[in-house]
Amino acid sequence: MRTIDTRGQQCPAPIIATKKALNEAKKGEAFQVLTDNQTSLNNLTRFLLDNKTKYSVNETQGVWTLTITKTTAETTQQRTEEYCNTDIPHFSQGNFVIAFTSDKMGVGDDELGNLLMANFIKAIKDLDHLPAKMVFYNSGVMLGRDDSAVIENLREIEKMGVKMLLCATCVNFYSLKEKVHIGTLSNMYEIARAMASAPNVIKP
């Protein structure tokens, strides 16, 4: 049986040696690890327990011998659902900004552009990270109308904590003042500042 001598070593060295041996061992193969340090022993057994690895310990004259058998880790599926069935907000906010410069996505057929934009806004909620802010200018402000096709999705994103800035000049220009009730009406300085301070600005 292979023996790994970690006597005289302190953590994390014994764990590194043990992990390496575990990786190299075949399934069912056993090996021994020696340690003369109580703390290292405690940490090693804790490490093995947490990684669901079988072991036994013997002590002689201040030296512990761990006999470790490599088993295939069986993933414990139980209770995962229980953990996930919580109302904890799972989303996380990133640092990027999305700039809506038009109510359509891309350049081309208008109908397609509207459809793509609706799909894009729906997809934002499923991103790994939500944007820090979303800014709307020129015809982008149309998306924020009460009767817009995407308004429900936008409201939901806003509820998740994403700040929305709508260009007030644009809202006035398109005479939408009575029809926009989402986000904050904002000036160009705020919008420029939001974009300038973000590492990434996405323009759909």
Partner: peptide
């Protein structure tokens, strides 16, 4: 992942 887990981590855990 290589096993470099300092002793303090076990104490804190």
């Amino acid at each position: 992942d290589q096993g470099c887990i300092p002793g303090a981590s076990f104490r804190n855990l």
